[in-house]
Amino acid sequence: MKSAHDLVAAAKQRIEEVALDGAEQAVRNADLVLDVREPDEYAAGHLPGAVSVPRGLLEFKLSATPAMTPRDLKVVVYCKSGGRAALAAASMKDMGYLQVVSLAGGFDGWQSAGFPVVRPEQPTFD
């Protein structure tokens, strides 16, 4: 039986990852930046311009959203540390997407490198 770690390792063998030193350029050049973390993680902070599509809904959301269906979109996928993004990138590759990269190190790496993070303002009830 394979573990989640085994599945992530296998996915990483099939996909392209972009290292943090090329991450900003990859995000700038992307047509679509996908945050595949859970909604509460996205709400706590995300990459500028990122669209929230939780990993569990990815294939359904991609299939149902016309703006996300072109297979030649330049896509950067990320999660917290890289595992879910690797699985998502492998799934997108299986769906026929041609230009998908996973962000090595994920959101944690991006944030640790000092790259910009969007943190939506929460309403106050004073």
Score class of each variant (00 low, 15 high):
14 R>S: 13
43 A>E: 14
113 A>F: 07
28 R>Y: 05
2 K>P: 15
114 G>C: 08
79 C>P: 02
37 R>T: 08
93 K>T: 11
26 A>V: 04
87 L>Q: 09
125 F>L: 11
62 L>M: 15
34 L>D: 03
28 R>H: 13
45 G>I: 01
109 G>N: 09
44 A>Y: 02
82 G>I: 00
68 M>K: 12
48 P>C: 05
83 G>N: 06
28 R>G: 05
102 S>T: 04
46 H>W: 09
18 V>W: 08
16 E>T: 14
92 M>W: 01
27 V>A: 09
74 K>A: 10
18 V>G: 06
40 D>Y: 12
119 R>H: 11
22 G>D: 10
44 A>H: 02
50 A>S: 15
19 A>C: 01
107 F>N: 02
101 V>P: 09
22 G>Q: 09
62 L>E: 07
111 Q>L: 12
103 L>Y: 06
110 W>V: 06
97 Y>L: 07
56 G>L: 04
67 A>Y: 08
112 S>A: 15
109 G>E: 07
122 Q>L: 07
57 L>Y: 15
108 D>Q: 14
33 V>R: 12
119 R>A: 08
104 A>H: 07
16 E>M: 12
11 A>K: 00
93 K>W: 05
68 M>N: 11
54 P>Q: 11
12 K>A: 00
84 R>L: 10
49 G>R: 10
11 A>S: 13
124 T>L: 04
53 V>T: 09
48 P>M: 02
12 K>V: 01
41 E>L: 01
92 M>Y: 05
40 D>H: 13
126 D>R: 11
110 W>C: 07
106 G>C: 07
71 R>K: 15
120 P>A: 04
43 A>R: 13
37 R>N: 11
6 D>N: 13
69 T>E: 13
73 L>Y: 06
3 S>N: 06
48 P>R: 05
53 V>N: 14
115 F>Q: 10
107 F>G: 01
51 V>R: 15
113 A>C: 10
96 G>L: 10
109 G>W: 03
